[in-house]
Design a protein around this nucleic acid. Structure first.
Lengths: 226, 226
DNA sequence: TTATGTGAAAGCGTTCACAGCC
DNA sequence: GGCTGTGAACGCTTTCACATAA
């Protein structure tokens, strides 16, 4: 009886909505209102919560604090997770400064990069370490979650080292598919890809005119059948 | 006969894999090898491609350049999409400098932010404009795709203005659920959420010991049933 | 013989609709 | 009366397995 992946991916959304409600002093909420705040269907919200247990009261709704605690416990945000960031280019640096990590139960315990220009520089009180010292940094900090923000070419090699050192969760911003052993979780965030998905739909919006036959279009555009 | 969403989300992955293959001088590839490069099952790859047309050769495989052109056309990367970035904090600035947008057929045509400290500053030759001038900037640049990297509190108000100005695709980095009218596509990237999903699985990995009854745990941890 | 393209089957995820409980 | 919790129905996605074509 395990929780479906799709549900797990929504738990953080519920958590944030609940935090926002709590901040506004609301202490009880119905599935309908919470669903609206989270941007999902109310049946879906109830089904999702039912995988965790029966935390609501029929005829009333959910106690905001209590539900928040329960989901938080499930997601693992009751303890603070140490996180290591690898690669401190533009994106890595922005991530290191990003408050959304800290506010959600994560602490950046180390940042590593091979560039001499960056090593020693401090961000939020933590100094950037040489990538060459990764084998010392990971065991020392005990991080099992890593954020990969290296160039695509370097990502796999770094991932291999991280996994060898005991990292079992990787958030990958590098534009490459990582190969990792079973038991290691990877989530990929590809920013260019997100825009491409939007562009696909954009293109369709202009295309209410029926499309030209592919063959004709092809020749005009220079794509040649092999 | 339209293409399933799940397939659309994978097309950019295939595109990147094909580009990488082309760069390495490979001109023909089988579904098995391409699937491996893209990190998916080969049956899935074939089914996905079958929605676009019959671009392979039985007994041989796919012509890399030709397939790349076909997927590119489908995704809309044959033309260059103008994109506007709203919010140039750490994350917005990193996105403005991010090469992955430009290399995939997008061009940052405007950047807006309300902060006087940022207005006028140039990134990649484009100057940051005052958010107050949004009503002038969007029509002038013709952007229909926007990247939102504002604080959560500001996101909805900015989104409303963008939509009113004709933006129909939003990539939302703000930690909030956006309400938009039908016909507008929103993709949300929530970095904290991604880490939380990883943390969920991390927590399970340590939990091979059967869990304590929820009630007991609750009292110890201070969560109180209403 | 080899590898694509695709119906059919299996597996997931979402939504419906209502029984159960406050 | 009102709202949760959930089996059942539905729809989408993935995988299988093989006919089809080079």
């Amino acid at each position: 009886m395990s929780i479906p992946e799709a549900t797990i991916a929504r738990l953080p959304v519920y958590l944030r909505a609940l935090t926002s409600l709590a901040d506004r002093g609301i202490d009880t909420i119905s599935s309908g209102s919470l669903a609206e705040a989270a941007g999902v269907n109310s049946a879906q919200l109830r089904k999702d919560l039912s995988y965790l247990g029966s935390y609501g009261t029929r005829g009333v709704g959910y106690d905001v604090e209590y539900l928040r605690f329960q989901i938080g416990r499930e997601v693992g945000s009751t303890n603070e997770w140490p996180v290591i960031i690898v690669g401190l280019g533009n994106l890595g640096t922005a991530l290191a400064k990003y408050s959304g990590f800290t506010s959600r139960g994560f602490r950046i315990v180390a940042m590593v990069d091979p560039s001499p220009a960056l090593i020693g520089k401090r961000i939020n009180g933590v100094a950037i370490t040489d990538l060459a010292d990764l084998e010392e940094v990971v065991p020392r900090t005990g991080a099992v979650i890593a954020v990969l923000a290296t160039p695509a070419e370097a990502a796999q090699a770094v991932a291999d080292r991280l996994v060898y050192l005991g990292v079992t969760s990787i958030l990958n911003f590098a534009a490459t598919v990582l190969a990792v052993p079973d038991g290691v979780n990877v989530r990929k965030v590809d920013l260019g890809q997100e825009l491409q998905i939007l562009a696909y739909h954009e293109q369709r919006k202009s295309d209410d005119v029926p499309r030209e036959p592919a063959g004709t279009f092809l020749i005009e555009q220079g794509g040649s059948r092999p």
